[in-house]
């Protein structure tokens, strides 16, 4: 990389020595000074190389606050230099973040600024790059921080990881009666985020791996059959099938009132149903079901706005 002459490599060596000798404060300040000098000279590649090695080095010496500070500068340099959101660069920032322990207050800032940078990968994804979300999800899962892991899995494309995490989460912290609801919640939310592939994979992996789900499909629990059928109905684009399922499985769907709202959204996103009239509190799906029956199968008339407020719903 960046062959910026002997000067740089001598400086890097000097900085490394400083850190090895335990002069963390001096090294940290030196990294900062050099970083700003490179950036002012528009030597972005050199600045990135320097700050990445500095952050790695300080973090490997358990200097978490200064390491996190340099991690933030790395993301800043990524932003200023329009560094592409590709695996190599995601690995850099995720690798640093994942070595910062969860009780270091600066870690949250690193995570949010990294996600902010990753949004430049795809303007359509308002919540950040799926690959970065996946790296964070796995890290948080290892830390048994299921709540945050779950959020990041939902914005990743790792349905298999999500399912395994949810099995563990349910067994550790859920009630036995919620075995089907844990996966239903995730499947509905993935679908509301228009991520059909992850919804399907999460469903199949969860039902396969969960020790309390011994057979199926078809399953003993009606809600699981509903999900299984619904995913097929979405795949086949059959609105009448979808509406029949929503109607016949009402008792299961009412176990969590928000399911009806998710299904409303799913009806809009995958079957072109109009949004419900009036306040969204369960009434909408019935309206739509009725309209579905009365109007037959309108097919996809592209009435749904593709920008979709679904993301907001989940944030």
């Amino acid at each position: 990389m960046a062959t910026s002459g002997r000067g740089t490599s001598r400086v890097l060596l000097k900085l490394r020595q400083n850190v090895e000798e335990g002069n963390y404060y001096e090294a940290h300040q030196m990294y900062r000074t050099l970083y700003h000098r490179y950036m002012a000279q528009k030597k972005h590649a050199e600045a990135i190389e320097l700050i990445y090695s500095g952050a790695s080095l300080l973090l490997s010496h358990n200097q978490y606050t200064s390491g996190a500070d340099l991690c933030l500068l790395l993301v800043e340099a990524f932003n200023i230099s329009d560094t592409p959101v590709v695996t190599e660069n995601i690995d850099k920032v995720a690798g640093l973040v994942c070595t910062i322990p969860s009780d270091v207050p600066e870690r949250g800032k690193c995570i949010s600024s990294a996600l902010q940078w990753s949004k430049t990968s795809n303007k359509a994804i308002k919540t950040g790059d799926p690959e970065l979300h996946q790296r964070l999800a796995v890290k948080l899962w290892q830390e048994k921080n299921y709540f945050e892991a779950r959020y990041h899995f939902l914005h990743s494309c790792d349905g298999e990881g999500c399912a395994s995490m949810l099995v563990e989460y349910h067994v550790a912290n859920g009630y036995p009666s919620e075995v089907d609801m844990f996966v239903a919640q995730a499947v509905f939310q993935y679908l509301c985020l228009k991520n059909k592939a992850c919804a399907t994979l999460t469903f199949h992996m969860y039902t396969e791996k969960h020790p309390a789900i011994s057979s199926g499909p078809p399953f003993i629990l009606p809600l699981l059959n509903f999900l299984w059928f619904m995913l097929m109905a979405i795949e086949g684009g059959k609105l009448t099938t979808f509406t029949v399922l929503c109607e016949q499985y009402q008792p299961s769907l009412k176990r969590d009132p928000i399911y009806l709202e998710y299904l409303d959204r799913i009806g809009q996103l995958f079957f072109g149903l109009p949004p419900p009239i009036g306040p969204p509190m369960g009434g909408g799906i019935l309206d739509n079901l009725l309209r579905g029956f009365l109007g037959g199968e309108p097919g996809n008339d592209d009435e749904t706005d593709s920008s979709g407020p679904a993301e907001e719903e989940l944030d």
Binding site: F147, R150, N173, E178, F182, A186, P222, D256
Partner: peptide, 20 residues
Amino acid sequence: RQRRQAPQGGLSDAYLAGMP
């Protein structure tokens, strides 16, 4: 089966944490 189904009891904190 749904006719015989017991009403859903309280939900766990772990489950509720997954709500928007």
